[in-house]
């Protein structure tokens, strides 16, 4: 299933679909294979069923330096359950059997580098991946990757943060396609209690230097946060740790885990509505 000739939704189509309904977008993040392949797939089904506009799927890495404890543990559970790169791609292929919404992956660069940049992006495209964000690949090191991403029609996503200067925001804007991932806090991934004022300022600053839609992530955990960042001008929010915590708290009761994931997804999606 190649992106060019498929019926998969693109990010721009997704943003249009949402804006027609005067909604922001809600994008959940989970790690493929957490806590195991089949449960993980069932979790993704719940996410889609309950209103996810797009998906961010983590490919587990042994040394995730940008991630806080919640996502670290998810990586570890996935690796311990036997996930590897081939199975990750198979996981995406399975997702494609039941949804056409945009699917992005979040990965650390060594996993791409070991497979070979060209082969990795080819396989990503063939398996229905819309975008790739490599957490430890800043634009300085990304020129080859950006070229290959274009070749295979995959959107390359970059992070922007409060510490990112205006000059860098321009570079990031030139290198990115699809959307820009805005890091809402200074820190690693993980659930937080509030959205900082600086996030709101950053959304406004980014608007001036970046034409791409903005999705805000890292520390967005509550429906109120989702509402807040969309009201501040972002197109949507990415929520990871808050959902992954449900997984880790219900490892012995999968039924309850899926039910809670569903309920929370519904609430988080609901928060994207009527806040324009």
């Amino acid at each position: 299933m190649s992106l060019e000739n498929s019926s998969l939704e693109s990010y721009s189509e997704m943003f249009k679909r949402a804006s027609k309904k005067f909604e922001g977008v809600f994008v959940p993040f989970v790690v493929a294979g957490d806590p195991d392949f089949d449960t993980s797939l069932a979790i993704v089904k719940e996410l889609v069923k309950n209103g996810a506009d797009a998906l961010e799927i983590g490919f587990a890495f042994s040394d995730p330096i940008a991630d806080g404890p919640t996502v670290q543990e998810a990586n570890l559970r996935a690796l311990n359950s036997g996930i590897n790169i081939d199975k990750n791609f198979e996981f995406i292929k399975k997702i494609r059997e039941f949804t056409s919404i945009p699917v992005g992956i979040l990965i650390y660069y060594n996993l791409i580098y070991q497979r070979g940049i060209d082969l990795f992006y080819q396989q990503a495209s063939e398996n229905g991946i819309n975008s790739i964000l490599s957490a430890d690949l800043p634009p300085e090191e990304a020129s080859e990757v950006v070229k290959v991403a274009k070749k295979y029609g995959v959107n390359q996503i970059f992070l922007a943060a409060q510490t990112t200067t205006n000059e860098r925001l321009k570079v990031i804007s030139e290198f990115s396609s699809g959307f820009t991932y805005l890091v809402s806090v200074m820190g690693v991934t993980g659930a937080r209690n509030e959205v900082k004022n600086s996030t709101v300022d950053l959304i406004k600053r980014l608007r001036k230097h970046n034409d791409l839609p903005l999705l805000v992530g890292f520390g967005i955990s509550h429906p109120n946060h989702v509402k807040e960042v969309i009201e501040a001008g972002a197109e949507g929010a990415i929520v990871g740790s808050a959902l992954i915590e449900i997984i880790s708290q219900n490892l012995n009761d999968k039924e309850r885990m899926l039910q809670k994931i569903g309920e929370n997804t519904l609430k988080l999606k609901e928060a994207t509505k009527n806040c324009l």
Binding site: A66, T164, I172
Partner: peptide
């Protein structure tokens, strides 16, 4: 090289 998350680049 500098294979680090964006947050560290300014540092």
């Amino acid at each position: 090289g500098i294979f680090v998350p964006e947050l560290l680049i300014p540092a």
